[in-house]
Amino acid sequence: MLIINGTVHTMEGLTIPGGYVDIRGDKIAGTGPMEECPKSWEGEVFDAQGGHIQPGFVDAHCHLGMFGDSTGIEGDDGNEATDPCTPHLRAVDAVNPMDRGFQEAREAGVTTVLTGPGSANPISGQFAALKTNGRWVDAMVLKAPAAMKLALGENPKLTYHERHEAPTTRMATAAIIRENLAKAAEYREKLERAAQDEEEDKPDYDAKLEALLPVIRGELPVHIHAHRADDMATGIRICKEFGLKYVLVHGTEGHLIPDLLAQEGAGVITGPCLTDRSKPELMHQSLETPAILQRFGVKVAICTDHPETPIQYLPLCAAMAIRGGMDPESALACVTIRAAELAGVADRVGSLAPGKDADVTVTSAHPLNWLSRMRLVVMDGKVVHGRL
Rank of each mutant, 00 (worst) to 15 (best):
E12T: 14
R24I: 12
D26S: 15
G30D: 00
T31V: 13
M34R: 02
S40I: 13
G50A: 05
G50H: 08
G56T: 08
V58I: 09
L64D: 03
G65N: 11
M66A: 09
G75E: 08
D76L: 15
R90G: 06
M98E: 11
D99L: 14
A108I: 03
T111A: 11
S124C: 14
K131C: 13
N133V: 15
D138A: 15
D138M: 14
L142N: 10
A151C: 13
H161Y: 12
E165T: 02
A172E: 15
A175Q: 02
I176T: 10
N180F: 12
A182R: 15
A185N: 00
Y187D: 00
Y187M: 08
E192F: 06
Y205P: 01
E210V: 07
L213H: 07
P214L: 12
V215P: 01
V222E: 01
H225T: 04
A226W: 11
A229D: 12
D230H: 09
A233L: 06
A233I: 09
H250C: 10
Q263V: 04
E264Q: 11
E264G: 06
G267A: 13
H284K: 03
P290R: 10
R295A: 15
V298W: 00
V300C: 05
T304W: 04
P307N: 06
Y313S: 07
A318K: 03
A321R: 01
D327M: 13
L332G: 04
C334G: 07
A339L: 04
A339D: 02
A340Q: 00
E341Q: 06
L342S: 08
V345E: 01
S351M: 04
A353G: 06
D359K: 01
R375V: 09
V377K: 00
V377P: 00
K382V: 14
V384E: 10
L388Q: 09
